[in-house]
Simulated assay, not measured.
Amino acid sequence: MTSIKMSRRAALVAVGYCVAAPAILRAETTGFARRNTAMFRRQDWRDHFDTLGPAAIVADTPARALHFWSGDGEDYRVYPTSVPISDALTKRGYTRVTRKKVGPDWTPTASMLERNPDLRYMPPGPGNPLGTHAMYLSWPAYLIHGTHDTRKIGRPSSDGCIGLYNEMIAELFAITPVGAQVRII
């Protein structure tokens, strides 16, 4: 009979794998990551616009992705987003970017205060739910903005806005002109 010697370190690694294996297998079989990444791919939504104008953005809420095209169609980018927490808070249709602000301040809307009367105005900074940059849309109280809470990206977590990682909203902010077309689907 052959004797197998195992070091203490190898034994600990083996035990750790046995403990983690069910979670790893569950994650692979649920398809969450696969569905999330499969939907997060290059898509051509340009046919949703007559022309690209100065730039065009499609916020695909089911896929939790934002697609950007420059006016000449040469620059295409896609970003992961947070989306509204419910269908009732999701406004769909055509709008445009009316203004942009670095270091936005935040004031809760009436409907937010109705749900949570403890909410208060927040100046720019780390606790501000709008993150580092905001692009205001022609619809009142709807924005494309950053977030300091990175757990929100890829999830339904907003009160109607489209949220991006702060680094990504800074990039999008730099290339998106005021007047850019936006379609939320």
Rank of each mutant, 00 (worst) to 15 (best):
M1F: 02
I4A: 09
K5T: 10
M6P: 00
S7N: 02
R9T: 13
A11C: 07
L12T: 00
V13A: 10
V13C: 10
V13H: 11
V13T: 11
A14E: 05
A14M: 12
G16S: 14
G16T: 12
A20L: 15
A20E: 07
A20S: 12
A21M: 13
A23Q: 08
I24Y: 11
L25I: 13
R26K: 14
R26P: 00
R26G: 03
T29I: 05
T30K: 13
T30R: 15
A33T: 09
R34L: 05
T37M: 13
M39L: 14
R42E: 14
Q43H: 07
Q43K: 15
D44Q: 01
D44Y: 04
W45A: 03
D47C: 00
D47H: 14
D50F: 06
T51D: 15
T51V: 08
L52Q: 12
T61W: 03
P62F: 07
P62C: 10
P62Q: 02
A63W: 09
A63N: 12
R64K: 15
A65H: 04
A65R: 09
A65D: 06
L66F: 04
L66A: 00
H67Y: 15
D72L: 06
E74L: 11
D75I: 05
D75M: 05
Y79S: 01
Y79C: 01
Y79P: 01
P80Y: 07
T81N: 03
I85S: 15
I85F: 07
D87W: 07
A88E: 09
T90M: 09
T90H: 14
R92G: 00
Y94T: 08
T95W: 10
T95G: 02
R96C: 05
T98F: 00
K101D: 02
P104D: 12
W106E: 12
W106L: 07
A110D: 15
S111L: 08
S111E: 15
N116S: 14
N116R: 15
P117V: 08
D118Q: 14
D118E: 15
L119K: 14
L119Y: 08
P126H: 12
P126V: 09
N128S: 15
L130G: 08
L130H: 11
G131K: 13
T132C: 00
A134R: 11
Y136T: 08
L137H: 11
L137E: 13
W139S: 04
P140I: 00
G146H: 09
T147E: 07
T147S: 08
H148D: 08
D149A: 04
D149R: 06
T150H: 03
R151E: 11
R151P: 00
K152L: 11
G154P: 04
G154S: 12
R155G: 03
P156V: 04
S157N: 13
D159R: 03
D159T: 04
G160C: 05
C161F: 01
I162W: 00
I162N: 02
L164S: 02
Y165G: 04
Y165R: 01
N166A: 05
E167D: 12
E167I: 01
M168F: 03
A170M: 04
A170G: 06
E171T: 10
L172W: 06
L172M: 06
A174E: 14
I175K: 15
T176M: 10
T176P: 08
T176R: 14
V178I: 14
G179Y: 04
A180S: 13
A180T: 02
V182F: 11
I185M: 12
